[in-house]
Amino acid sequence: MKRLSRLRRHRAAGPILLVFALFTIGTTFQVASAVSNTTTTAADRSATIEEGKQLFLKGCSSCHGLNAEGGGIAPSLIGVGAASVDFQVGTGRMPMADMSTQAVRKKVVYTPEEINALATYVASLADGPAVPTDAVLNYERDGSVAQGGELFRTNCAMCHNFAAQGGALTQGKYAPTLMGVEPKQIYEAMITGPQSMPVFSDKTITPAEKLSIIKWIKAAEKEPQLGGTALGRVGPVTEGLLVWTLGIGLLIGVAVWLAMKAR
């Protein structure tokens, strides 16, 4: 104890004690606040899940089942992940308007918060691809447009056409146009494989490569008319149509005028 009292009387004792006290208070506060933060997030999350569950029961369960286990007409959602929900509901494909050949892109029914709640609920059922964050989606910085084009032509053009305008699949299904689709949704489609579309795994097409694909699609979308009106960018069919209508039409029109007797 003597030793302690001697230290206590040391002239540096005051300042050291002060620093120590401040440090302790600070750390304690930090830890305390951190603890309280995690508890609130967990609470929020379970609240979100609950909200999502309620939305799900109201809007989705009639087809996908009360526990998202799927039914005769709709697939199970266990393990599809938040990305899948965000894509399907965020593009308005879900809820489906009618049981036709495939869900179509239409007006979005839910608010972003509701979509988040639904996605969180479905993600809570089993692990699955998460919604990519804005930090991940920095395709302008991380993508290469030329590499993206090459990847697009190898992996995407066979369905979505060389200029991402969409194309026909079997039995009336189709690959939609990618013009005007948000980068996040393109990314989600690649990792979740919605409807007819297959999944493009992160190992076979790396996240960086996916960003390149998005960058190329965006470049194609923004590309101005280099050679005049684009005729839908679907290849020779519309070109043939134009030459059989406007082209030969103009020429025959002039020929008729040429052979008409002047008054």
Binding site: T154, V199, F200, S201, T204, E209
Partner: peptide, 21 residues
Amino acid sequence: VTDPGDRPIKPADLEVGAVAQ
């Protein structure tokens, strides 16, 4: 190996429903 990219592929790299060129 992947086209393009030339990376070898493990079975686990492909989820069910996935394709690779």
